[in-house]
Design a protein around this nucleic acid. Structure first.
Lengths: 130, 130
DNA sequence: TGTCTGTATCGACGAACGTCGATACAGACA
DNA sequence: TGTCTGTATCGACGTTCGTCGATACAGACA
């Protein structure tokens, strides 16, 4: 078990970035910005691209490694990578012939802490169910 | 307590539950399922609805509390609530005249742990613009 | 019973999205 | 230089999405 990571995470400081959205109502601007980021995650190809890049050796992957596993065309992959990059979820760099992409972990961490629920175990004050 | 809603979730697939997506590539099925959930979050109105419900007194809110803060029509609010409910993010129940909604924390927690990054210490470095 | 209020559904419309083939651009190399 | 490979952009197409007004449904109450 990797309690180490949990301990390292330790984002107990809501003031730093993102207080969980279940604690206080989101403002319009924050909601718009967050919706943009979630929209970037709201596609199966982009989700798989993201996890492929992140789990790739060295934490980065060449586009040439990313076109194979998918049934979509190369322009489509390029389009999805652009969406991820424009949203700040990944970074990219050209090195000679190839272009490499890597995940920007802070963006994911921000969303993760925002979705965090204080009491994920129980339905809390759900009161009743059907 | 009766965790009917939680049972409905019924996703004991570990790839969907706890392993961060940055550790191993997502499968096609897991990606499709997750994309559906992120799509439900990919709208400013739904995000604000969710946080309004969760942060409301008692952890639940009547629809009558949810139509006021928005500039969209009542059918639109109802539509968004339906999306959230169909995705398993909220539960709902009619009590007499009013219908109450509450957040199902396990769904959010699942997404949160999925976005967790092992090496992202503080989200503040992300350019924390908002 | 009839009526009123709160919520959901229906049907339609414009905008945004995912995808493609064609093509342009960038770097490597002969 | 010219050519080849890897990646990005363009323009177009069909689908999905968010929104609305109109309307149907459910419960409360006179």
């Amino acid at each position: 078990m990797s309690n180490l990571e949990l301990a390292v995470l330790g984002q107990d400081d809501p003031a730093l970035c993102c207080s969980p959205m279940v604690r206080e109502p989101l403002g319009e601007d924050a909601a718009a910005e967050l919706a943009r980021m979630f929209k970037a995650l709201a596609d199966p190809v982009r989700l798989r691209l993201l996890s492929l890049i992140a789990s790739h050796e060295g934490g980065e992957a060449c586009v040439c490694d990313l076109t194979g596993p998918f049934d979509v065309s190369q322009p489509t992959i390029s389009h999805h990578l652009k969406v991820l990059r424009d949203t700040g979820l990944v970074g990219s760099e050209r090195r000679g012939t190839w272009v490499y992409y890597w995940v920007l972990p802070t963006a994911l961490a921000k969303l993760s802490s925002l979705l965090r629920t204080p009491d994920a175990a129980e339905p809390a004050a759900a009161g009743g169910s059907e």
